[in-house]
Nucleic acid binder design. Structure first.
Lengths: 163, 163
DNA sequence: CGAACTTTTGAAAGAGCTCAATAGAAGTGG
DNA sequence: CCACTTCTATTGAGCTCTTTCAAAAGTTCG
């Protein structure tokens, strides 16, 4: 899944990507800032906010879980914020490391999203993302056997780029 | 107050500015990503996380407040994220509107922070921030009678710039 | 007034964007 | 299986915006 928002100038900002098992859209206020879209076949479990809050009110364990969940979400956002003030190379490196951690098998990451999605996620253009991938490949930090399959060849180099 | 983090390359990223009455640092996880600093004389009330969570476990009203609080924090972060992918002019315009809303008296905003703080908050350099202020003044969107006193002369122009 | 600090301004360099073309992948129908 | 179309990704060249480095102007405080 991806959450996104269309800005007034037509650009699209992606709020985040969600993988199997992830929880998203936990909101306690009424403004729904982002829309959500499936990018692959997806099963979704929907929970009513009022039901969740009511449940948390009765069950301290649920409440605790909920706090932990929003805590993680906040941390993710903060990391994201830090990523967005960096250079294109740092953003792409950070993105790959994030995806490797969340969805990687060994050193191989299958990206479920397009270059355009990545660009809108990182606040870059699709051309810059593509060029940066090529650059990282040239620098032997990654390999790109297929456009959506990335092999991390040198994580410490990526981590170094990530700032 | 400002919260901040020093990146590995020495740059400083400011997490946020907090004004009188604001609550900050509500964390449910153990990683303290940001440090905090007072930039003017400040009185701070400190609440232990464990105490707060325990209280929320007993008092549903407190729990509800806490959810609302983190919800606002999340929304603030999302807006921030949107700001960080925009142009310098959009970032500065957005910053001024935010500050006007939070601390403005009529059309006058007294900025408690330095240009460097603003730059580190917006992910720009101090020179770019300064130039952008000058540009907005030339465009009659704001006036700058003193370097830390901003008069909003044309909010709709700022809002338009804000995207 | 003089020293230290903050802010503004200038000129050149660099990073990323835009526009445009090419290349590659995936699906369709003969 | 191959031509054809469509969609996605890569590459190239020029331009724009932001940064960098440097200097000047304004502020604050002893």
């Amino acid at each position: 899944m991806r959450t996104y928002k269309i800005l007034s100038d037509g650009r699209r900002q992606i709020g985040g990507f969600y993988l199997p098992g992830d929880i998203f859209g936990v909101e306690f206020t009424d403004d729904h800032a982002f829309s959500a879209e499936a990018i692959t076949d997806t099963k979704i479990v929907v929970v009513k906010r009022s039901a969740l809050i009511a449940l948390a009110g009765r069950d301290a364990t649920i409440a605790h879980e909920l706090f932990a969940l929003t805590g993680r979400e906040l941390r993710r956002m903060r990391e994201r914020m830090l990523l967005l003030v960096k250079s294109a190379q740092e953003r792409v490196a950070g993105f790959l490391l994030e995806m490797a951690e969340r969805a990687g098998v060994g050193n191989i990451v299958e990206l479920p999203m397009s270059r355009q999605d990545i660009a809108d996620y990182l606040g870059l253009t699709i051309e810059t993302v593509s060029r940066t991938f090529t650059g990282l490949e040239t620098a032997a930090a990654i390999a790109v056997p297929a456009s959506r399959r990335i092999v991390l060849r040198n994580r410490s180099a990526l981590r170094h780029l990530n700032g």
